[in-house]
Structures are given as C-alpha cells and as structure tokens.
C-alpha cells in the first residue's frame, strides 16, 4: 500500500500507457488517424450503407439496413443500384465525359502553369516572393464569387464581348457562357495555382550547375530545357497534374454555373439523382463509383512516386 501511495500520478499514467503499448509516437499518429476515421471513414461507411438500400417515400427516403424482426435483427441490402449504373449508358458517358474534361483542363493548366512556375522559380528575390503572393492572392476571395465573376466576363453582354466588339475584332458577341469552353476556362482558372505551386517547389530546387554542365557539353538552351529541366521536374508535373485532375473530375459548381445543359459531368448527374429523382441510394452508388474511379489515379501517383524513390 505505501509504495503505491508514494508513486506520483504521472508515473502511474506513463507506466499505464506503456503497458497498453502506447508511447509518444503512437499518440502523435493517433491524431491524424482519428481525424481520418471521423471525417473520412465514417462518412464513407454511411454513404456505402445508403448505396445498398432501396429508395422509399419516408424520412430519410431509403430503406433501413438493419431490420428488427421477430427473430432478432436481419440485414437487408441490394447491389441493384450498382447494377443500374451499367444498365443506363448515361452514367458511363458521364464518367467518360468527366475524365475528358478533367484531362484537357489538366493539360491546359500544365501548358499555362509550367512557364509561370519556371519564370517565378528563375526570378530573383524579392520579386519571386511577390509573384508567389500574387498566385495565392485569389484564394482570399470566395471561390464561388470568382466563378460568378466569370459569368460577368463571359456572358453575351459581358466585359469580354464588349471589349472585343469595341476593338472591332468581332462583329457579333461570342457565345461562350453555357458552353464547354466556359467550363474549361473556369476549371483552368480555378485550379491553376494547384499546378503552379508544386511545379514551383520543384523547379526552384533545380541545380544551376546541371544547366551549366549541359551548356558546357554543347547543348543549346532549348535542348537543355527538354533534356534536363523537364525530366528533372517530372515529380512536380505529376503532383500538379494530380492536384488539378482529381478535383476537376468531381467538379460540380463550375459546370453548374458556367456550363450548358449538355455539359455532362458526374457531379451534375449525382445532383440529379439526389435532388430530382430523390433516389439517395443510386446517388450514393454514383458517389462510391466515383471514389473508386478517383482512387485509380491516386494509386498511379503513388506507384510513380515509389518508383522514383527506388531510382533516387
């Protein structure tokens, strides 16, 4: 008894934790793990649960997973909602169309973002910091408001048409709003910083000695750029492309506000299932399928990174 009383509470706790196999390292890891559990895994399981239910007129509008019967609990689940995604070509077309729009948006972002990132990385301080701030500055305004601003720029009687008409470049206002072009403009504009920042982070580390060596060995600036700079910046290109491609696939707000009625994207299809059809189970199945679709590029990214780790 006396020995127990003499030991301090702190020692008790520490030894207790040690008995449970916990130490400082585990505690540090626990925070992000709990975060993932609460904000990713549990919502995912809820969506998964709804995706195997059947729709009904009730609150909430789907059948329960667990049913209390006379002989205890039973589980009622169906895979019909997933099968339905293959029965109607709409869903596959929407996935393909989303991938197409996301892919070309990524290519445009890369073509525009690479020279910008390169220029920033090659700029001397303090100009470099100023340029970086300018890239991040738009985030200070709500994303939604910035998309609305594009409506004002692109619409029939908008800023762009007024400007071009005044210059005499065009005689009739261009119809850009409610077309796929407006969607591309919106996505590229919104996600460009996500392309530039990883590219910049990569290019700024580029060793000048390598470029000098290339020049010493007789390569011109263009040859050096394509044979030295681009291959070395590949991890930045991959990271930037993934950061643009993945959110662009599931994009809803931009096609809804800027796109036309025939802009088919999976985010809009999901909205229709959820709101117009009141079919939460099929909407959930669409969401799970989209998640699976997004996991594939993430796996490819990880594969590319681990390969790079091996070679380095």
């Amino acid at each position: 008894m006396t020995t127990l009383r003499s030991s301090s509470p702190w020692r008790l706790t520490a030894s207790g934790l040690a008995k449970l196999g916990l130490n400082g390292r585990a505690l540090v890891i626990a925070v992000p793990m709990i975060w993932l559990l609460v904000f990713f895994l549990i919502p995912f399981l809820v969506v998964l649960k709804i995706s195997v239910a059947e729709p009904m007129i009730a609150r909430p509008p789907y059948s329960p997973l667990f049913i209390e019967g006379q002989d205890g609990w039973s589980i009622k689940a169906t895979l019909g909602n997933y099968a339905y995604l293959f029965e109607d070509s709409l869903y596959i077309n929407a996935y393909l169309s989303s991938i197409k729009i996301a892919f070309f948006s990524t290519v445009f972002s890369l073509l525009i973002g690479y020279p910008m990132a390169y220029y920033i990385a090659r700029s001397p301080e303090p100009k470099r910091s100023l340029l970086l701030i300018l890239i991040v500055l738009p985030f200070w305004t709500s994303f939604l408001l910035r998309v609305y601003a594009w409506i004002g720029i692109l619409k029939g009687k908008g800023v762009l048409n007024a400007f071009l008409l005044k210059l005499g470049v065009i005689n009739e206002p261009l119809i850009i709003m409610q077309t796929d072009i407006a969607v591309y403009i919106g996505i590229v504009y919104t996600y460009l910083p996500f392309m530039i920042l990883p590219l910049y982070a990569n290019l700024v580390k580029l060793d000048d000695a390598l470029l000098e060596a290339s020049a010493d060995l007789g390569a011109g600036p263009i040859s050096t750029f394509f044979r030295i700079t681009i291959p070395l910046s590949l991890p930045g290109i991959v990271a930037g492309s993934m950061l643009v491609f993945i959110p662009a696939i599931g994009e809803f707000v931009i096609p809804a506000l800027l796109g036309g009625p025939d802009t088919l994207m999976i985010g809009k299809v999901l909205w229709t299932e959820f709101f117009s059809n009141r079919d939460w189970p099929v909407a959930s199945a669409v969401a799970i399928a989209m998640l699976v679709l997004l996991v594939i590029p993430i796996m490819l990214l990880r594969l590319a990174q681990s390969k790079q780790g091996d070679s380095a």
Partner: peptide, 19 residues
C-alpha cells in the same frame, strides 16, 4: 410515383444533354 419520377427525370436528362 417513384417509377414515373425516374422516367420523367431520365427523359429530362436526355432532353438537356442529348444522352
């Protein structure tokens, strides 16, 4: 009813997107 609802929404998607 739920079935007609789905038919109507599906037809509407077809009208809007051509799909």
């Amino acid at each position: 009813d739920a079935r007609t609802d789905r038919t109507v929404t599906r037809l509407w998607t077809k009208v809007k997107t051509g799909q």
